[in-house]
Write a protein that binds this DNA or RNA. Sequence first.
DNA 1: CGACTCGTACGATAACCATCGTAGTACGGT
DNA 2: ACCGTACTACGATGGTTATCGTACGAGTCG
Lengths: 118, 118
Amino acid sequence: MTATDTAADRRALPHPAREEIRLEPVLHALSDPMRLRIVTDLAEAEGELSCSHFDLPVAKSTSTHHFRVLRESGVIRQVYRGTAKMNGLRRDDLDALFPGLLDALLDAAARQAVRLGD
Amino acid sequence: MTATDTAADRRALPHPAREEIRLEPVLHALSDPMRLRIVTDLAEAEGELSCSHFDLPVAKSTSTHHFRVLRESGVIRQVYRGTAKMNGLRRDDLDALFPGLLDALLDAAARQAVRLGD
DNA sequence: CGACTCGTACGATAACCATCGTAGTACGGT
DNA sequence: ACCGTACTACGATGGTTATCGTACGAGTCG
């Protein structure tokens, strides 16, 4: 370890590189209501949110699972900051790979929420 | 049955109405490589294609299963025409519900195919 | 009618997945 | 050193799914 290493670096989480992101896993990740909600919240926040910010109606261990699916598919980026784990949308990578897709998906999710009266 | 009934009418298949189509099942349907391929082929054809037109590397019964998932999620419309079953993208319905989504998805699939050298 | 093509239905199977509870680790503050 | 918070790892479980093979039904053409 070098002098620039931080505690957070040593706990780094595996992410797919931009060019490793594939469409099918991304769609699969977003096809779960819980995960789609995480992503829409994240898009609305326009920044990083801690896992505990989300009040999901599932057990904590299930929540961990959903965040991992999103990370491993390349939809979000996760970093440790102290005890918190921060989550951010990989907007730049997704927009570069699939232009317009993320916006269309977020718009679709928002329209559906309106349609269903939420 | 009335005088306007045809043989095809009597073998009608259940489809979700436009307003019953939900985003999550659509994304789930498209998250399978086999089904995504069916949809991109269908979009390229700009019309209806019979099931047998697709030369999928799976058993016939598996193929039937994938077409049903696409139909029940609202992505495609299926009608019988004689012995053949024709498949068409529900472009109008999807565009009305989720503007830009289908195009973004098809573009994403095409870009990924190029990226992977297919 | 008989043969053929196209697609379905059904049962089986193996893999996957969402969920949980429990036990544990890492960090920050007292 | 100790406690509390935040999150994870693991094992279990029940539900869903992708796949197959075989047997069948519906339509077309000879």
